[in-house]
């Protein structure tokens, strides 16, 4: 069963679902719009002959931040990680899914390659993680939603 706007709002008001920062205009009929943050993780493909998930390849990706109001240009076929501007905290009985906006999908932009499912956060202490922390932190926190972006 999915939550309707009223129930999402009730959960937010009760402090059980937290989106920070949250603005009322983000609430849709049965979802909440999320925004793109200014940090992206790009792949330094030239450093490795292949990706081996069994190896520590910590130089494979690099964090970039566009200058000022500059956009991040995603070229055809390119794949980068981004993250939501909002920090998300869920209670232990609600799971969530993240999906791209239809208006961007119609332009050929994928917002998640797979795994749109957001895990249940059972440890509220972990919800206070700085949203600037990235995939490296995924094993220790479920307070952030990382977006995989590809054209």
């Amino acid at each position: 069963m999915l939550l309707s706007d009223r129930d999402i709002l009730a959960e937010i008001d009760a402090g059980r679902v937290v989106l920070d920062p949250y603005e009322p205009g983000m609430l849709q009929p049965s979802s909440i719009d999320v925004r793109l943050d200014r940090f992206f993780r790009v792949f330094d493909n030239h450093k490795y002959p292949h990706i081996d998930p069994a190896q520590d390849q910590s130089d494979l990706t690099r964090l970039v931040e566009p200058d000022g109001d500059e956009p991040f240009i995603l070229h055809p076929g390119e794949f980068v990680l981004g993250s939501t501007y909002e920090t998300v905290t869920l209670p232990d009985d609600i799971a969530a899914r993240v999906e791209g906006k239809s208006s961007l999908g119609r332009l050929g932009l994928l917002t998640h390659a797979t795994a749109g499912y957001v895990v249940i956060c059972s440890d509220p202490e972990k919800s206070q993680v700085n949203p600037h922390s990235y995939v490296d932190d995924m094993s220790t926190t479920c307070s952030e939603v990382d977006l995989e972006v590809a054209a």
Partner: peptide, 10 residues
């Protein structure tokens, strides 16, 4: 999929 109640602003 069913919502738990009708959306207030569908």
């Amino acid at each position: 999929m069913r919502l738990d109640q009708p959306a207030e602003r569908p």
